[in-house]
Computed example of a mutant assay.
Amino acid sequence: MPEPDRVPGPPRAAQRAFAPVANALAGRRWFPLWAVVHHRGRRSGTAYATPIAVVPTTDRATILIGLPWGAHTNWARNVVAAGGAVLTWRGDEVATTAPRIVEGAEAAALAKPFFRFVVRRMPAALVLRRS
């Protein structure tokens, strides 16, 4: 049984079906809502490349990534532990720093108006600064 503050992860079948599409499109210049976050495991040191959705923000220096499965998402915890990550986004490598996990309400305040409704309902989000 999951812990009370954890949200169950995505269904495995959906994950297997969606992964090839996400990996093919994420990080491409012509697909700006998806990126790839490059990070290392906190304990293993293994390098990972995880496709993610970037939420447009009102501040160009701020990068916002929704965490629909909660603050305990492993890749997000890896990025926080490392103090940043590199994103492949819009066809470029973007170095980031100062990662922090915030609640949906704070994330909604950073998002562009059209996206606030969705972000506010997420249990958490990852906020990064371009370096």
Rank of each mutant, 00 (worst) to 15 (best):
S44G: 06
W89T: 01
A98Y: 05
V36S: 03
A26F: 05
P32R: 13
R129G: 05
V127Q: 04
R100W: 01
F117W: 13
R29C: 08
A35E: 11
M122K: 14
L87K: 00
R120E: 13
P99Q: 10
I63H: 04
E103Y: 06
G27K: 01
T88S: 14
L25Y: 00
T46Y: 13
R42K: 08
A105C: 10
S131P: 01
P56A: 01
A35F: 09
T62S: 07
V80K: 07
R77P: 15
V21Y: 05
V55G: 06
A82Y: 06
Q15D: 15
F18Y: 12
P68D: 04
P56R: 00
F18N: 15
R29I: 00
E106Y: 01
T46N: 14
V102L: 03
R60F: 14
P123S: 06
A98M: 03
S44I: 15
T88A: 12
P51N: 02
G84R: 02
H38I: 08
A98H: 13
T50K: 04
V118H: 15
V37H: 00
E3Y: 10
W30E: 10
W34D: 09
A47V: 09
V86D: 10
A49G: 11
R121I: 13
L67E: 01
P68N: 03
T58H: 02
W75K: 09
N23Q: 09
A49H: 02
T96W: 04
S44Y: 06
R121E: 08
R120G: 10
A35S: 05
R12A: 12
A47Q: 14
A125I: 08
A107Q: 00
R28M: 10
M1T: 11
P2I: 08
A81T: 04
R121L: 06
A35D: 02
A61G: 01
E93W: 11
T96K: 13
R116C: 09
A98E: 12
S44H: 12
P20V: 05
E3H: 15
R12H: 05
I63Y: 06
V80Q: 09
A76P: 01
V21G: 10
G45E: 06
P4Y: 01
V55S: 09
F114G: 08
W89F: 04
V7L: 08
A14M: 15
T57W: 04
N78G: 06
P8Y: 07
A124P: 08
P32T: 07
A47L: 09
A53S: 09
F117Y: 14
V7T: 11
R120H: 14
L128N: 00
W75S: 12
D5T: 11
G83A: 07
A111G: 06
H39M: 06
R29F: 03
A71M: 02
E93G: 07
D92P: 00
H72D: 15
L110D: 02
V54Q: 02
P2A: 08
